[in-house]
């Protein structure tokens, strides 16, 4: 058993100067829906909990002026789900938020936590990948911007420095005509950790030829991944049956699922194909 000190800094600067941050013995607390479970199960034993929820820089969803948006890292999943900016511009994010956990979890959990926890099954990460999200990482002395794909290294592993905090997430403006979708697969309609998730952003020209495409696969690799070969195979094609089934197969080959209590690797792989096909079909008319 351990002693746990709790702090509630009011500014980002104050938070970053905490002893627990400097010594690496503390943990930042936002929603706590993963962190507190890990503490309870004694997977981690931090000495300090530093609550970030009072810090203004970490709150709110705003337009950035160049057509994109900035999401504070402590915005809750419910906040993502209901943000008019996100609903209008980045609907796959809102969709993923809506399907995350249960209402109780969505009220508490934050987008920052969902990213930093670095679960291969994190619902919000797939859409962030296909929307090309940039993460704003802040330490006491430096601020840097990192692409989410470079940030995620593996299960529970990220490029977050010891003295850094994830301050915000920036989503760039999307080219006109981009459609996006997040399809989540589970046994139940709610309260699920994704067996498989497929996120797709797609843009085609007036004739239905795919000009650009991003596909992210959730819960089928050590981290949420891009299916680049599948993306490349789509470019310049029409969404006909042949293309759909070819791309679905490539997506299946792009992933590295495991077997666990939730599903077998084979089933997960098969669902990657099914969901990729269904996702593309659902975007077929969105040019």
């Amino acid at each position: 058993m351990f002693q746990l000190a709790y702090y509630e800094p009011q500014t980002l600067k104050e938070a970053l100067q905490m002893d627990g941050v400097k010594k690496g013995t503390g943990k930042f607390l936002a929603g706590g829906t993963d962190l507190l479970v890990q503490i309870k199960r004694r997977k981690i034993e931090p000495q300090e909990l530093i609550n970030l929820k009072a810090i203004p820089e970490l709150k709110g969803v705003q337009e950035t002026g160049d057509g994109g948006i900035r999401i504070g890292a402590a915005v809750t999943v419910k906040g993502i789900m209901e943000s008019s900016l996100i609903l209008a511009g980045y609907p796959a994010m809102a969709q993923a938020a809506k399907e995350l956990g249960t209402p109780q979890v969505r009220n508490r959990a934050t987008i920052g936590g969902n990213i930093v926890n670095a679960s291969p099954a994190a619902d919000l990460v797939g859409p962030l990948l296909v929307y090309d999200a940039i993460l704003l990482l802040t330490s006491e002395s430096v601020q840097r911007r990192v692409k989410i794909e470079d940030f995620l290294l593996g299960p529970s592993q990220t490029a977050l420095g010891k003295e850094e905090v994830l301050e915000a997430i920036e989503l760039p403006a999307l080219p006109a005509g981009t459609g996006a979708v997040y399809l989540k697969h589970g046994l139940r309609k709610t309260h699920e950790i994704a067996l498989v998730g497929v996120s797709i952003a797609l843009r085609s020209d007036g004739q239905g030829v795919i000009e650009d495409c991003r596909i992210a696969l959730t819960a089928v690799a050590p981290k949420v991944i891009r299916a680049r070969e599948a993306e490349d195979a789509l470019k310049g094609c029409h969404l006909d049956d042949e293309t759909l089934s070819r791309v679905a197969h490539i997506a299946e080959a792009n992933c590295l699922p495991i077997s666990d209590v939730r599903a077998s690797a084979d089933y997960r792989r098969q669902m990657v194909g099914v969901l990729t096909k269904r996702g593309l079909l659902s975007l077929g008319g969105s040019n």
Partner: peptide
């Protein structure tokens, strides 16, 4: 959906309501 799953060492793999799947109101 419901099943208590044990590993080969007899450890219950899903003693929680995320992975032990009782149907929800939406199902």
């Amino acid at each position: 959906t419901e099943e208590m799953v044990f590993d080969e060492m007899g450890r219950l793999q899903n003693p929680n309501l995320t992975d032990y799947k009782i149907l929800t109101v939406k199902d």
